[in-house]
Design a protein around this nucleic acid. Structure first.
Length: 552
RNA sequence: CGGGGCGUAGCGCAGCCUGGUUAGCGCGCGUGCUUUGGGAGCACGAGGCCGCCGGUUCGAAUCCGGCCGCCCCGACCA
């Protein structure tokens, strides 16, 4: 390809509204352009990279028996009413001229399950279908270039098995394929337990790529034996320094003490030896008391998982009616509601609210003084330690590039995707769903393969293998070099634009093809060119006759 | 949805507070000459609904009101 004819609008400066490195470089390099918040066009170079990522995914999906198909974007709302997902606020909804309701799907479980209803017999299972489909999500806040989009292409695949054992097998095969995909894309990533979500799946794993602009937070053990998404993973907080143990709880007046810091100061104790109570109301209206250590924070996604319900903070009036005290004086003793206590409160005696304004209790011990249900509901923090080996945990922002999920029978039951099993009985198909966002893969690759000058694409996804620079006056010679490379199957971008050498070098660094070949007077007299490795910066002189043989 | 910021040429910005000729600057773009291995120099030139609508005023990029859009933080998030 000749750069003089390529639509390649590179920019010297990053757009003012870009924050993430991948956002800045992909825009500057002429890979993508924004159309609206979270809505982007791939320009020619960006689409080539996208196609390369897609090709890798396709190969690995096919390698585990995937059958590629394509489902439409426009989808009758009826399917989503059956699955129950129609109520999600992120779902784009629209109507046709006859007022028939449609949705624009955020993923395609409903549609694939609709087709899976044609599967009749266990003899046809397992099946494994996928497509690269356009997803639409009315995100409340798109951001970061390609990191959170309102419209994007996703590889979503679906497995259809006769039983749980089959699903487990399909799930693991996907995990293997995903590892190969992300390896081939040059990503450093972690496979971690994920938040299963509200659809009742039993297990799900996330693929998280450490990158500062990511939205997930990864907890990693210094000894390498633990990695978890902090929305799911359990970590061990540093132990408290407890005051002398008491035989029974003791009331103490704490006038005007409204915060944990004030309480610890007033009593002269370690804040870690206190507890705090968070009254919440489940979606069925039941009030529950969440209890975490004084220095910890309740993490809402963990709490929701522990309660198996959404919840909201209780209101002042509800608190007073239930506990007979205000929000700053609540505790777990003598209450009529369920108490969900964090694991950190299992051992030891903590200070707790007395359910009496201006009073606390000393020496409150779980099991002896109150009977909670224990759950991991605290937010993982810097300074926590590894649950496996006790090593220090490090927190790191990460981009979620893939998610694999044991769905079970939620969709097959609601959409009537049943099969007849060997014993003649009809059963719902057991499903898994598996997603990868190529756009996020691209963003993640850039975040991990860049320097001050621009992107350094891994060869597997680079828009071109070799970037040949024709320095002024040497267009013909450069074209010959480019031809020689193309003849041996290399994908070549020939910069034949009428620009100064410095500008071509800068653009080449920015665009980030793995190899750069400079055709200039300086070396041509010797019948040679300079070949530079973008990632390492290594440059060496190669005779033109040998240039077709150079590799990264 | 809450908080903050921004909207002036393709990109980055100044001007606005304190209203007043033809709305500026850098980069980029076009033409010519000189240059030519790391974002050149000179000259000439093209390019603007100053986000939109309304109001105040003799006069609005500038003041006031409403709306729209975009970014960041939070909330939210299969």
């Amino acid at each position: 390809m000749r750069a003089s004819q390529l639509f390649l609008p590179t920019l010297r400066d990053p757009p003012a509204d870009a924050e993430a490195a991948s956002h800045k470089l992909l825009v500057r390099g002429g890979f993508i352009r924004q159309l609206s918040a979270g809505v982007w066009t791939y320009l020619p170079l960006g689409w080539r990279v996208h196609q390369n990522v897609v090709a890798i995914i396709r190969e690995e999906m096919d390698a585990i028996g995937g059958q590629e198909m394509l489902c439409p974007v426009l989808t009758p709302a009826e399917l989503w009413e059956k699955s129950g997902r129609i109520v999600y606020p992120e779902v784009f909804k629209l109507r046709d001229r006859n007022d028939r309701p449609f949705v624009l799907p955020m993923t395609h479980e409903e549609t694939f399950t609709f087709h899976a209803a044609e599967l009749q017999s266990y003899r046809q299972l397992p099946q494994f279908w996928y497509h690269f489909g356009t997803k639409e999500r009315d995100e409340p806040r798109p951001r970061g270039g390609l990191i959170r989009l309102r419209e994007f292409i996703m590889k979503d695949s679906y497995s259809f098995d006769r039983d749980q054992a089959g699903l487990d097998e399909s799930f693991l095969r996907h995990a293997e394929a995903y590892r190969r995909i992300f390896d081939r894309c040059g990503l450093r990533y972690y496979e971690v337990d994920a938040e299963p979500g509200m659809m009742g799946g039993s297990e799900s794993w996330d693929y998280l790529v450490p990158a500062s602009s990511g939205e997930n937070v990864l907890a990693l053990c210094e000894n390498g034996d633990f990695g978890a998404d902090t929305e799911v993973g359990r970590a061990v907080p540093p132990p408290p320094t407890f005051p002398a143990a008491l035989d029974r709880t003791q009331e103490i007046e704490t006038p005007g003490v409204g915060t944990i810091e004030a309480l610890a100061d007033f009593l002269g104790i370690d804040p870690r030896a206190t507890s705090k109570a968070m009254p919440v109301v489940k979606s069925d209206g039941a009030l529950v008391l969440g209890l975490v250590r004084g220095d910890d924070r309740l993490l809402d996604v963990k709490m929701a998982a522990a309660l198996a319900s959404d919840f909201r903070p209780a209101q002042e009036e509800e608190i007073r009616r239930t506990f007979g005290a205000g929000g700053g004086s609540l505790g777990p003793i003598g209450v009529s509601v369920e108490v969900v206590a964090d694991e950190a409160l299992r051992e030891g005696q903590f200070v707790a609210g007395a359910n009496r304004d201006g009073w606390h209790l000393l020496g409150v011990q779980a099991g002896r003084d109150y009977q909670p249900r224990f759950a991991d509901i605290r937010e993982v923090r810097e300074g926590d330690t590894c649950p496996n080996c006790g090593g220090a945990l490090q927190l790191q922002a990460a981009i979620e590039v893939g998610h694999i999920f044991k769905l079970g029978t939620h969709f097959s039951e609601r959409l009537g995707a049943n099969f007849v099993d060997e014993d003649g009985s009809e059963r719902p198909i057991v499903m898994g769903s598996y997603g990868i966002g190529p756009a996020r893969v691209i963003a993640a690759i850039v975040e991990q393969h860049l320097d001050e000058a621009g992107i350094a694409w891994p060869s597997s996804v680079a828009p071109y293998d070799v970037h040949v620079l024709a320095l002024p006056g040497l267009d013909e010679q450069a074209a010959q070099v480019a031809d020689a490379l193309e003849h041996v199957g290399r994908r070549v971008l020939l910069d034949d634009r009428e620009l100064r050498a410095g500008e071509k070098f800068a653009d080449a660094d920015l665009i980030g093809c793995p190899l750069r070949v400079t055709v200039g007077k300086r070396t041509l007299d010797d019948g040679a060119v300079d070949v530079r490795n973008r990632a390492t910066g290594d440059e060496h002189r190669v005779a033109i006759a040998d240039v077709a043989g150079v590799t990264v």
